[in-house]
């Protein structure tokens, strides 16, 4: 948290909900009365490309982009993306990785391969990494759509924003009739180490 700014890098693949997650996070920061910025590049993400969203909040935020190795927390929605971005973590930072795999189309060329033992490798770079199968947990909760909310619950443990503000924003942005399951999913995420 250099200069009092918290940096959260959220990464994944187009269609996974990275942008919605960063939207929720920045709204929570704003609700806390903090200055906040976020940045991502739209355009190609709907075509299966990599999606990254930089979220920064604190007393005063200038650049909307997190400098190299200054991410306090990285939240990866996909396993290989966790491995791709783990090098952006600041020393002592926290990486949270959903172990879901989305195999790139390029692998069908036989020239590119999905990384093997990615979980071990991520732990090798960051021994304190949290790796979880959020999809499995969402199924246990009875709603596979809760993956994102569970991940936000895990994320919330590593950054200093109030729980009731999180739940307020998540419920405000959730589809009608899903407020309670989202609350449950968020709290479930908070239990995960």
């Amino acid at each position: 948290m250099k200069n009092g700014t918290t940096n959260v890098l959220i990464v994944g693949v187009g269609g996974q909900g990275v942008l919605l997650a960063s939207e929720i996070l920045i709204e929570v920061a704003k609700l806390m009365g903090l200055d906040a910025k976020k940045s991502e590049v739209h355009g190609m993400s709907q075509r299966g490309g990599i999606v990254t969203s930089h979220v920064r909040f604190g007393k005063k935020v200038y650049s909307p982009l997190i400098p190299h190795r200054e991410s306090d927390v990285i939240l990866a929605f996909e396993l290989a993306e966790g491995l791709r971005w783990v090098g952006e973590l600041r020393p002592g930072g926290k990486i949270i990785v959903n172990t879901q795999k989305i195999i790139p189309t390029l692998t069908t060329t036989g020239k590119f391969f999905y990384p093997e033992k990615a979980e071990e490798k991520i732990r090798g770079y960051s021994p304190g990494a949290t790796l979880l199968d959020a999809y499995e947990i969402a199924l246990e909760l009875g709603n596979p759509r809760m993956v994102n909310t569970i991940l936000l619950g895990v994320l919330s443990k590593s950054i200093d924003l109030e729980e009731d503000k999180w739940i307020e924003v998540i419920q405000r942005m959730a589809p009608k009739g899903t407020a309670e399951i989202n609350r449950t999913a968020f709290l479930k995420g908070k239990e995960i180490d």
């Binding site: 299966g48 993306e81 791709r84 783990v86 790139p104 391969f113």
Partner: peptide, 10 residues
Amino acid sequence: TEPVLPRPPV
């Protein structure tokens, strides 16, 4: 860190 295969848009 280990390089990870690209994901060009398709």
